[in-house]
Every structure is written in C-alpha cells, then in structure tokens.
Design a protein around this nucleic acid. Sequence first.
DNA 1: ACCTGAACACCGTTCAAGT
DNA 2: ACCTGAACACCGTTCAAGT
Lengths: 216, 216
Amino acid sequence: MRERLSRDAIVHRAIEVADREGVAAVTIRRLADDHGVTPMALYWHFKDKEELFDGIAERLFADVTLPLLTGAAWHTELRAVLGAFLAAIRPHPTVADLALTRILASDAGLTIADRVLGLLRQARFSPEQAAEVGSYLLCAIITLVRSEPGPERALDEEVRDAAVREKRARLHALSPKRFPNVVASADALADCANEDSYFERGLDLLVEGTRGIQPG
Amino acid sequence: MRERLSRDAIVHRAIEVADREGVAAVTIRRLADDHGVTPMALYWHFKDKEELFDGIAERLFADVTLPLLTGAAWHTELRAVLGAFLAAIRPHPTVADLALTRILASDAGLTIADRVLGLLRQARFSPEQAAEVGSYLLCAIITLVRSEPGPERALDEEVRDAAVREKRARLHALSPKRFPNVVASADALADCANEDSYFERGLDLLVEGTRGIQPG
DNA sequence: ACCTGAACACCGTTCAAGT
DNA sequence: ACCTGAACACCGTTCAAGT
C-alpha cells in the first residue's frame, strides 16, 4: 500500500476502516500505518482530523447520483432525490453522521441541498421554511440509516447474530404489564426484519409529512 | 466539589460540561478533576466510559414528563409524547445523540417507547411496523434538535455570532447560477430564525408523515 | 465500600529537519 | 512538494494496594 499518498486514497481507506470497524477505528496513526507512512505525513494532506472528516462527508455526497428532473409532481421528485441520497449512504452507516453537519460544506452537498430547496420552493414553501424543512429532510435520511433497528451493521456476522439474540431475549424478558407494546414488538425492535421496506416506509413518512405541512 | 462521589453527581456534571463545551470535553480525567478525585475513582461507579454515556442517556429519558393519556385521537397523543421528549432534550443538543442508540436501554426510555408503540398500534400499525416507525420517530426528534440550522449551540454568544456571520457570508458568496436556492435561503440556513417554529414544523412533519403512512 | 498510585498503550498535533 | 523523527500534552483503562 505505498504508491504515493493522496487525499483521495486516505479518505477512501478511512471509509473502508469505518465500514469494517466503526468510526472509532479511524485514527490518524492507524491510517498512516495502513498507507505505510508516518502519522505526520497525513498532515500534509489534511490540516487536522476535522478536515479528514470533511473529506469523508464530501465523498458521501459526491457518490449521490442526482436523478434527472422529469417534470413530475414536486413530491415525486423529492422522493427521488431523497432516495438517491439514501442509496449513497446506506453502505456506510457508521460514517453517515459525519455528513449531518457538513451538507453545506462541499459542492456536492450544496448541489443536493439546492435541488431539495428548489423542489420545496416549487411546493410554495418560503425560502425560510424551505431552509428549515430541506436541511431537516437530509438529516432525517441520515438518521434513517443510522437508527435502523438492530445492532451496528459494522460487525462480523457471527458477533452481530449473537448481539441480536441477546437483545431479543432481553426485550422478551421485560414485564408485559409495564411494557406490553415493547414486548409485542420485541423481534422487530431487536433486528430489522426487512431493510428495504424499512427504508421505503421511512421515505414515505418524510415525503408524506412534507406534503402534510405544505403551505397554502 | 467534594461531598461524596455518586453516579448521579458524575452524570449531572458530565451533562453540564457537554452543554457548555461539547461532548468531546466530557472525559474521565476531566470529570475526576471537577469532582476533586482521581480518574480511577470513577471506575468504581462506572465500568467504562460507555456506561457513563448510558447514564447520560438514561437521565435525558428520565427528564421527560410523559403527558397523561386524554383519549384524544392517536395522532394528537403522539404529538404530545414527541413534544414532551423534544422539550426534555432541547436544552442538551450536544448529548442528545447519545440517546439515539440507547432508547431501549433504560426503564425511562422503555416507558416512552412503549407509549409511542401503543399509539401506533392504536392507529392499526402492526407490531413490526410500529417497531420501525416508533423507534424512527424518537430518533427523528433527536435529529431535529441536533440539526437545527446554524452553528453549535454550545458556544459563547460572541463566538457563535461570528460563526453565523461567516457562514452567512460564505453562502451569499456562492454562485447564484449554480446554487440559486441555497443563496435565496442563505440567511435561514446560516442560522435558525425562530427556534420554536422550527421545532413545531418538525413535529408537524413527523406526525403528518405518520398519518400519511397509516395502514388501512 | 470506596478511593489512590503507578503504569501501559494508545491518541492528535507541533516543530524542526530532511530530500 | 512531500515526508520523517522526536517530543508534548493529552486520552481510557488495568492492576495492585490502601483505608
């Protein structure tokens, strides 16, 4: 893994490490090791760790393939953009929240934000309302990925399965008098039964919610 | 600050520190100092830092005053629970995301989750659907607090104002050809104009969205 | 039961220096 | 332009020991 260091290579490796071992494993020294280089070498490419995180977020936004505008209803187009964003971050649940505060920090992020804002304006939201609703919608998509029921995705299958079983057992063991609904939903709370339908339902909720508060 | 260490005192101080200086400032050694005690003293009260974070999350859930059930429509009751949860975490935006993955880890969290699940069951969601939608709704409330437009709340007024001005200037300086909608919403993106209406709108969106995907 | 002292293996980052 | 070496000020945590 020595072929000339670069921002891109470092960011790429950082995402790999995060996907496999969690964000906590993403460390300057660890990345340096992986690239066969001194920790300080990274500081030529990034001012500090914060800037490395900026790079990761930017990459996530850059991975979004923005759907073409078809002239369909605004809420149809909105669902398409949010879906595209969701598709881009789904493979990287552990780094997704780095994007939460960095939407407006890169060209790629701005492009997506601008699209969402435009659709909201089309739906008669004011610039102020669009700002609040739009930035929230993107954050809500990130949260959809981060908070999928079940233990962290970035684990060995074996370890993960054990964690699911333990969680399910713990929930089933709760008092059905005190927590009847939690017990009734225990299986689905311990692990998401169907990821696709979970994400579809989440998208639906957000788009329908936006329609529900449409002005006028 | 020496009056006998306790879980509660440590958690209380940890939240204070996080509110004023951010979660990164919450450190075993720092808390030990604040309490006039050796770092290792904390390890008698908490197995590790993770358990301290559990304690913080639990406290947030315990601060929620669950509204009485009035027999109103399920979506009215739902809005009341979510609003109560929102009210509890609003003062602590920086620690809110510690609660994201810990809803089912304490009695207080389970109580809130059970209420939400119950209302969703009342609205004819299946146990599986209720699990997915319910846990997402609580996470979405946390995200509402975390992703309010503008720089971090946990800053001196002066520093924060400067950050807002800089962000606004940066957004206004963008190409209006490439990012027309971002530029149009620049002020509202740089800083939330009215927190209360931002949160009200967010609650509306989530409740209306839930109604929008109600089965049957 | 509750806390200390010393030590270990980690961090991010600075600064001067090398090629 | 790109990277290294040595050093600093921090972390969380273990383990044996004190009262």
